[in-house]
């Protein structure tokens, strides 16, 4: 499944870029992310409790950052597996300056397997959109906060 969209964040591009590549911030922004530990260069082990309504699943997996060209582009690759199946996806983030704000264009592929693939068909698109919107809402809050308190307090 393709996921794409644009999102404007009210912070300068380099600020947004550093937030987007900061594991502490990512952990707080990714809905349900309970742990994100660095295990290599741009490689993190993740624990995710994701879901909507009564439907919940725990996923364990990896997050990898690739193709990093600060402050305009990077790719995030996520793979997770849990009792309800697996999810993996990658998304390219392109950041554009936009009058002091930053326009994020994201475009990615999400693939799911296992039980959630076989029964969640009609919900998957909505769930992905909801995760994305929660992610960006949290990110906006993070960049506002870090803009306010300065780079040093990241993490």
């Amino acid at each position: 499944m393709k996921i794409e969209g644009t999102q404007e964040l009210h912070a300068p591009r380099d600020r947004v870029y550093s937030a987007l590549t900061n594991p502490g911030i990512l952990q707080r922004c990714i809905p349900g992310c309970e742990a994100l530990e660095k295990i290599g260069e741009n490689l993190f082990a993740a624990m995710l409790k994701a879901g909507v309504g009564a439907i919940k699943g725990t996923f364990k997996g990896e997050v990898r950052l690739e193709d990093m060209r600060p402050p305009e582009h990077y790719r995030i690759v996520v793979e997770g597996k849990g009792g309800v199946g697996f999810a993996k996806g990658s998304a390219d983030f392109d950041l554009e300056e936009n009058d002091g704000a930053t326009l994020i264009k994201y475009s990615g592929e999400l693939q799911i397997g296992g039980t959630i693939a076989g029964v969640g068909q009609r919900m998957i698109q909505g769930a992905a959109k909801m995760m994305a919107s929660r992610f960006f809402a949290a990110l906006e809050a993070e960049v506002q906060r870090t803009t306010a308190i300065g780079e040093a307090d990241l993490v």
């Binding site: 009564a54 439907i55 919940k56 039980t115 029964v119």
Partner: peptide
């Protein structure tokens, strides 16, 4: 979780998509 008829919740539980 509240059981209030169960016609959405129980199927989700049987698939282990919900595990309250």
């Amino acid at each position: 979780k509240i059981l209030a008829g169960g016609h959405s919740l129980i199927p989700a539980m049987k698939l282990r998509l919900a595990m309250p």
